[in-house]
Design a binder for these strands. Structure first.
Lengths: 148, 148
DNA sequence: CACAATTAAATTGCACACAATATACTTGCA
DNA sequence: TGCAAGTATATTGTGTGCAATTTAATTGTG
C-alpha cells in the first residue's frame, strides 16, 4: 500500500471499495427481473425472507438482521403492507413495538420465491468455493466497519 | 447448492448477495465521515477520482467507468458544479456531448483526498492479499452479471 | 440530400439509505 | 410515585440508482 503513488491510490481501478460498491449495484440490478414476478424489490425480498423465518418480528429485529434503520424500514414495510403481504400491528406487552405479521398472501409468496436463489446462483456463475470465500470476506468487511 | 432445504435457501444468513449488499452499505456509511471534510458523498468522490485521472471526460465516459447512467450522473454532476468543483461544458465536435472540466478548486481538492484511501484501508483492517482476493471476486460478479 | 435510425444527455417517477430529529411509550431511580 | 433517562418507531430532508421516456444532435442509407 504505502509504496503506491498518488495517481495509483486515487484510481478507482485499484480500489476494493469501488469494486464492492459496483458489484452490489449489479446484484440489485440483476435481481430486478427475477423479483418482478413477485412484485418485490430486492430490499423488500430481504425483509420478506427475515419474516418467513421469523414471523411476528419487530422493526428493531428486522433492522438488526438487515443492518437497516427505521428510516429505511418504516416506509418499506408500509409498502409491503399496502401490497397485502403483512400487517403492522403493535405488541401488547410494549406499545412502542411494531409486530410485523405476514398475511396468508405473504406466507404464500414464499413458495414462489424458492426459485429465486437458484436463478441468481446461475447468473453469478461462480464456483461454490468462490462464493463461500466472497461471503466470508464481505462479512469481515461489514464486521470491521461496524465496530469502528 | 441443490441439497439445501427451502429454509436454508431462503435464509439471508446463507446468501452471498446479502453479504455483499450489506458490505457495500457499510462501506458507503464508513466513507461518510472521511469525506465530510471534503464536502463530498461517496459517489461524488468516485466521479471526482475519474475526473482527476481524465479531466474533460464526457458523461458517457464517466458512466462507463462508474457503471452508472445519466439518470444518476446528471444530478450528481450538477451538484458538483454548484459546489464550484467543475464546469459542464459542451463538446465543439458533437453538441450532444457534455465535457466535464474541473475548476481550479476541483483540481486542488485532489491534494486533500490523498489521505482518504489510506484511512479506509486502516478501517477495513484486512491483509492486502485478502483485499486483492475480494476485489477480484467482486469484479468477477460485476462482469458476470453485466453480460447477461 | 432527405430522413429514418442511432446516440448523448436530460427528465420523471419510484424506492431505497441514512443522518438528524421528533414522538410516544417504558423503565429506573430518587 | 414522579420524572428523568432510555428505547422503539416515525418523520423529514438529501442524495443516490435506475427504468422509462424525452429531447436534441449526429450518422447512415437510399
Amino acid at each position: 500500500m504505502s509504496q503506491m503513488s498518488v495517481e495509483e491510490l486515487l484510481c478507482i481501478d485499484n480500489q476494493v471499495c469501488f469494486s464492492l460498491y459496483s458489484a452490489a449495484n449489479a446484484i440489485v440490478r440483476a435481481y430486478r427481473p427475477l423479483l418482478e414476478a413477485l412484485d418485490l424489490t430486492y430490499p423488500q425480498y430481504l425483509a420478506m425472507m427475515v419474516l418467513w423465518q421469523n414471523d411476528g418480528a419487530s422493526v428493531k429485529y428486522l433492522g438488526e438482521k438487515l443492518h437497516l434503520d427505521s428510516g429505511t424500514l418504516t416506509p418499506l414495510l408500509k409498502r409491503l403492507e399496502s401490497k397485502g403481504l403483512l400487517r403492522r400491528g403493535r405488541s401488547e406487552q410494549d406499545e412502542r413495538v411494531r409486530v410485523i405479521e405476514l398475511t396468508d398472501a405473504g406466507v404464500a409468496l414464499k413458495q414462489r420465491a424458492v426459485e429465486v436463489p437458484e436463478q441468481m446462483y446461475c447468473l453469478l456463475g461462480l464456483e461454490v468455493q468462490q462464493l463461500t470465500e466472497l461471503k466470508q470476506l464481505c462479512d469481515q468487511v461489514t464486521q470491521k466497519l461496524s465496530q469502528s
